[in-house]
């Protein structure tokens, strides 16, 4: 007799499974979870903490907040950040002062761990929310974060 109850229970379980998929089939129009990516670029908004790439914000006077302390370079596990710095004479005080020449960021080596941004004492570098990081040549992935001719904001060092 268990032969027939096996068949009955088996068929019943199969139909239960088919009901689940069938339910989604009927509501296919509103149920679709597909994001049609390149088409929804306008509406696609990343979360504000999203780790896209490291950038250095500049204000309207082309000034950034990086003092060249190299905390980020030390904190980075992969050597993604290189800071080329120099000592220049401050015109006001006449003392020699450390300033960055180039803040080089290798996006190709970055693992988006966020240690550099945690380490930065002056909040000079932040996460950008861009998500399209592919380029045709890997040399484009080596970026200089400070803009040419930029200087340090006054009062950051204090």
């Amino acid at each position: 007799m268990s032969y027939f109850s096996d068949i009955y229970n088996g068929v019943k379980s199969l139909i239960t499974g088919m009901k689940v998929t069938g339910g989604y089939f009927i509501h296919a129009r509103k149920g679709a979870i597909t994001q049609q990516y390149p088409d929804n670029r306008e509406t696609l908004k990343m979360f504000d903490r999203f780790r896209g790439e490291v950038v250095m914000p500049h204000d309207e006077n082309n000034q950034h907040r990086c003092t060249g302390c190299q905390s980020c370079e030390i904190a980075c596990p992969n050597g993604s950040i290189e800071i080329i710095w120099d000592r220049a004479i401050d015109p006001e005080t006449g003392k020699k002062k450390k300033k960055i020449d180039k803040h080089i960021y290798h996006l190709s080596m970055c693992t988006m761990c966020g240690l550099c941004i945690e380490a930065c004492p002056t909040d000079a570098i932040v996460w950008a929310q861009n998500y399209e990081n592919s380029v045709y040549d890997r040399s484009y992935l080596t970026k200089t974060l400070n803009q040419p001719g930029s200087t340090v904001q006054a009062g950051v060092e204090d």
Binding site: R49, R51, M112, L115, W127
Partner: peptide
């Protein structure tokens, strides 16, 4: 996907989150 969204909003990454740090968390929850 729901969970990944939660992670992305709080930690900034979906899979390799690196949210913990020795001594606590990197930053507060969203």
């Amino acid at each position: 996907e729901y969970i990944n969204d939660i992670f992305e909003e709080t930690c900034g990454a979906r899979l390799t989150m690196n949210y913990n740090a020795p001594g606590g968390l990197m930053f507060d929850i969203h």
